Computed example of a mutant assay.
Amino acid sequence: MNYVIGIDGGGTKTTCLFMEAGQNKLPAQPKRIIGKGSNPHIIGFEEAGARLVSLIRQGLAKFTIAPHQIVGVGCGLAGVGRQDDEEHMTELLRKKFYSLNFSENCHLFVTSDSMIALKGALPEEAASGMLVIAGTGSNAIAMDKCGKIIRCGGWGHLIGDEGSGYYISLKALSKVSKAADGRGQDTAITSLLLSDLHLEQPAQLISYLYGRPHEKHEIARLARHVIAASEQGDEVAIALLQEAAEELILHAASLYRESSSFTSETPVTAAGSIFQHSAVVKQHFIEQLHKRRLGTYCKAFGPPEFGACLLAK
């Protein structure tokens, strides 16, 4: 039996899926293994390659799959959006695959994490569609009926990532500071945030935030308190999340304008922790998507690693 491997390499974790080459749907009990992040622009291309090879090796052993049974590897990595990055990673992985004893005819496909997410999310019969992603960061990607790939966002947390967890967290911290000063409305976000960070007063946020450098994901995770506050009916939190959804709608609108083949019937799906955990963001996004006739929302067909398997074939 032959297999393909689909890899979703993010900044914080990497998911590796082993799937029978003849399958076109995600198995009920997928052969999946998870390891450390593999964004080459964070840990370096050599280290990213080493982590991927190590994870594949673990999977082969865990699921008792022989190297000669692997006929394709699809790899979607965060930070790999340019052609030179794809070519560099492809060449590096081909060399490292020698240690795995894969066949020289094994198909290798390296692309961005957003591309595999789009491939996995669209319905099997869809000729075109869009995917809007809002997790730690945000971006959007689409494919029109001619097969053209269109991208929007992905500018990073310093000049972009609108609607993401990082964006929501920064906005929330601003709301907390304004409430503490009397410049803004009181919000339940304050108590939830302080409790999580083991702080007693909002003013202590200054030393917490500026006392040492914080990774992007450390700030982004604070968005969960905005989501929790919205579930309590907090007006500030709800308005903030609706604002985030508006930013994500702008991503879809930008994609829509780039191709005449997109219509109000074009399937649009969403991915990422913000869509997954915030009912406010998801509901507002879907409502505005349909109201502005930018497409028709549909649930993701499969996860990114499944899309990577399809590309591996």
Rank of each mutant, 00 (worst) to 15 (best):
146 C>I: 05
197 L>P: 02
217 H>W: 14
221 R>V: 12
137 G>L: 05
220 A>W: 02
163 G>K: 01
162 E>P: 09
171 K>F: 00
161 D>C: 13
148 K>N: 12
202 P>R: 13
150 I>K: 07
221 R>P: 00
177 S>N: 05
185 Q>M: 15
207 S>Y: 13
183 R>N: 13
149 I>S: 09
166 Y>N: 03
204 Q>A: 15
203 A>I: 14
192 L>H: 05
193 L>C: 11
161 D>A: 13
173 L>A: 11
165 G>W: 01
214 H>K: 14
167 Y>R: 06
184 G>M: 10
181 D>A: 09
146 C>P: 00
196 D>I: 00
168 I>N: 01
153 G>V: 04
177 S>G: 06
137 G>T: 06
143 M>W: 04
137 G>C: 10
192 L>Q: 02
185 Q>H: 15
213 P>E: 06
189 I>M: 06
153 G>I: 04
199 L>M: 08
201 Q>N: 12
143 M>Y: 06
142 A>V: 13
170 L>W: 10
176 V>R: 01
196 D>C: 04
143 M>L: 14
140 A>D: 02
202 P>E: 07
221 R>S: 07
192 L>I: 03
184 G>L: 10
163 G>C: 10
175 K>G: 00
159 I>A: 12
186 D>K: 13
169 S>V: 09
180 A>D: 11
171 K>G: 00
170 L>V: 15
174 S>N: 14
219 I>G: 03
138 S>Y: 03
158 L>H: 15
199 L>I: 13
202 P>I: 13
148 K>Q: 12
163 G>V: 08
138 S>L: 02
159 I>P: 05
175 K>L: 13
152 C>D: 05
175 K>Y: 12
137 G>Q: 03
